[in-house]
């Protein structure tokens, strides 16, 4: 269960890489991705989630390029985007049921799985437009967890959460990180630092693997701008 970035270059147009020469390796546990604002953390996560093809290099999951069979890779993937969900005229439950079908959850299990996650994440059965930003963020997490993924990618998951929601997210991430890989971008690493098994710091020149935060001195902690 290892995700490898091997000299990856990323960009939205050919010939214009936003990020180049990205190399790192992450296995089971929670890995925090930090770095200055606008450096490309979301771009890196999109590439890891197979939403963006690399311009060069390879992204491997379980030793195989994720683009060799992207559909097979996505069976093991859960992704929480940075932006809040914009779903006009749709109820949270209907949207989760739809995604549960897309994720291949059997008919008999679908409703119970959706109900279970809605209860665990305290999501009301309402139209998404009526949700607060924090609830939308929890809805995105519920969607990502539907298929109980082996690789969970979270883009700034704490941004819109209040203190109690952050506490609950920490508890859940701690539980989830025990048997899967979680790659989580954050501009406030202190919030999740004590849970992290690894720490990746992104610069315009590539990724610096800061290793296990528990083994670092405070002066080594990367600071986001």
């Amino acid at each position: 269960m290892t995700l490898i970035f091997d000299q990856v270059a990323l960009g939205y147009r050919h010939g214009e890489p936003v990020l180049a020469d990205l190399s790192f390796e992450a296995s089971r546990g929670l890995y925090l991705l930090t770095g200055p604002n606008g450096v490309g953390k979301s771009t890196l996560l999109k590439a890891a989630a197979s939403l963006l093809r690399p311009l060069a290099g390879a992204i491997r999951w379980r030793g195989r390029s994720i683009w060799a069979d992207p559909v097979a890779f996505r069976w093991e993937l859960g992704y929480v985007p940075q932006d809040p969900l914009d779903l006009p005229g749709q109820s949270a439950r209907d949207w989760l049921l739809y995604l549960a079908a897309l994720k291949g959850i059997r008919h008999l299990s679908r409703r119970s799985r959706v109900d279970q996650l809605m209860a665990e994440l305290q999501l009301a059965d309402e139209f998404v437009a009526q949700y607060s930003t924090g609830m939308k963020q929890r809805l995105a997490l519920a969607a990502a967890l539907l298929n109980d993924p082996e690789l969970l990618i979270l883009d700034e998951p704490t941004t819109a959460l209040d203190l109690e929601e952050k506490r609950q997210l920490r508890a859940r991430l701690s539980e989830l990180a025990a048997d899967r890989l979680i790659l989580c971008a954050t501009h406030v690493p202190e919030e999740l630092d004590s849970l992290a098994d690894g720490h990746l710091y992104l610069t315009t020149h590539g990724v610096i693997d800061r290793g296990d935060p528990l083994r670092r001195g405070p002066e080594d902690l990367p600071r986001s701008s």
């Binding site: 989630a49 197979s50 097979a72 069976w75 993937l77 985007p81 969900l85 749709q90």
Partner: peptide
């Protein structure tokens, strides 16, 4: 097609389906 954009589309596209199916 309008709901097929932004964050919701990203979540759909990280599901194990071909984008053409969506």
């Amino acid at each position: 097609l309008v709901p097929m954009r932004g964050a919701a589309l990203q979540v759909e596209l990280t599901s194990p389906v071909n984008p053409a199916q969506v």
